[in-house]
Design a protein around this nucleic acid. Structure first.
Lengths: 250, 250
DNA sequence: ATTCATTTGTCCGTATGTATA
DNA sequence: GTATACATACGGACAAATGAA
């Protein structure tokens, strides 16, 4: 009935084939982080292309966070360990061009953070519990100090919880979205009049969450963390977006 | 006490400044999707750089999914609407180089999909309910047909739910992670002996989920969707990773 | 501490196939 | 169908930067 299925051929550019080959080598592990690529002149010999083509490929690989090249380095471009920078970049772009609202971002964080708490309550080790407690202690010490210290300690607490969830994807995504949210409202937070009250409330919330995690009460920890995040950010979310956030609180 | 805080200066390359400027124009909306960039020769005049530098910048912008250029196009590079392709790429890289396990990916989907169901149960319109019902109908019709049709209809159902959640970030992330998971186990699914039984079970589950969404029972819909996804994928997840998945089922 | 060979960043010119008017 | 402008790819060149002798 029907003949052979021909696929549309796209003209694949020379630099893309170079990107594919090096990408494959990095992702398959045959090129480890810390190892070096051959120099550009050597690459143009191996791939039988001009230097411009090699360089375009290297720029793409650099944009994807796989390699880094420095001028004059005789060892060639360096293979980098994975970093969520590229993920961060594309999510930031999404937030800007697609006009991702602050409400959506906070809602996303509420979902992921609550899940991390749920999992952490069941999977955490004693060391991780101690890490969380230490972070809260740092927060308490920073109330009188700079907001940056407080924020760093707060991040450390969330990171400890995410780590205890044993799910790297949850950990990375919460991290990325958190920094985007903080970028969006950094100046508003700095100007907040009741900042110290908000900090004390956050500490109280975190203590409750930690108690629930310690007791293995996953559902409770999840609910408390959602409430905590809601209380912390609701002041910056436009009125009309708040009902969607409250949907997650029941 | 301490002097002025100097920041480390990094030598910023010429092509990066071009990337930054065009990126800013796209993300701020002053360059809309569909609009064209000036030709490379014009860009080298405007930025006062060489052709190679312009091209390296365009390669980076293309890798980030912001523009596309075709040989011979007299209109210059085209500004593209946002696509999650770059997000997809970096998550795929993460999954490969950081050895993200199938269990972690499925767990992540369980979390996001459940949240989408929870939100959809409270926010859905009648049109969206009809869309979900239509997707289930397509699944039922495809049981006897090809697996590809069934899978496409299944995707349509999940997408309708995600859309009804009113959260673009949840929608995009579920979409990205789903395709990564399916890539990982595509061949195993194709070889599954009890595929038809699994398909019928999936349809039953989706009907239950839809009923819960229709009734506005968000927590029930979330729980059912987690169970459904667990049942669908558990066979492909290594034994030692299953307890972590079951943690989400209670 | 300095020199020196090598590498990257950037520039210029040219040839070729392609898409639009 | 032709002409024009375009992107792709090539090769050669020089300055700044790096690491090693």
């Amino acid at each position: 009935m029907s003949g052979p299925r021909f696929e549309p051929v796209r003209t694949v550019r020379a630099y893309e084939r170079i990107v594919e080959q090096i990408e494959e080598a990095v992702e398959s592990g045959s090129l480890q982080p810390g190892e070096r690529l051959p120099s550009e002149r050597e690459l143009m010999a191996q791939f039988a292309v001009s230097r411009s083509t090699v360089r375009e490929a290297l720029r793409v690989l650099q944009a994807r966070g796989l390699v880094r090249s420095r001028p004059g380095d005789p060892h060639g471009a360096e293979v980098l360990p994975f970093s969520p920078a590229a993920l961060h970049k594309s999510m930031t772009t999404l937030a800007r061009v697609d006009e991702l609202s602050l409400g959506e971002l906070v809602q996303f964080r509420m979902v992921l953070d609550a899940s991390a708490n749920l999992l952490a309550a069941r999977l955490r080790t004693d060391e991780e519990l101690a890490e969380m407690a230490a972070a809260i202690e740092r927060m308490r010490a920073a109330v009188a100090g700079s907001y940056d210290e407080f924020s760093a300690a707060d991040v450390a607490f969330h990171d400890a919880v995410a780590g205890a969830s044993r799910n790297k994807l949850i950990q990375i995504c919460t991290d990325v979205v958190r920094s985007i949210v903080l970028d969006l409202i950094a100046e508003k937070i700095a100007a907040a009049a009741d900042r110290e009250a908000l900090m004390r409330q956050t500490i109280r919330h975190h203590e409750e969450v930690l108690a629930a995690i310690r007791a293995g009460e996953g559902l409770l920890a999840a609910r408390l963390s959602r409430q905590s995040m809601y209380d912390y950010y609701v002041g910056y979310v436009p009125e009309e977006e708040r009902p969607a956030l409250r949907t997650l609180l029941e």
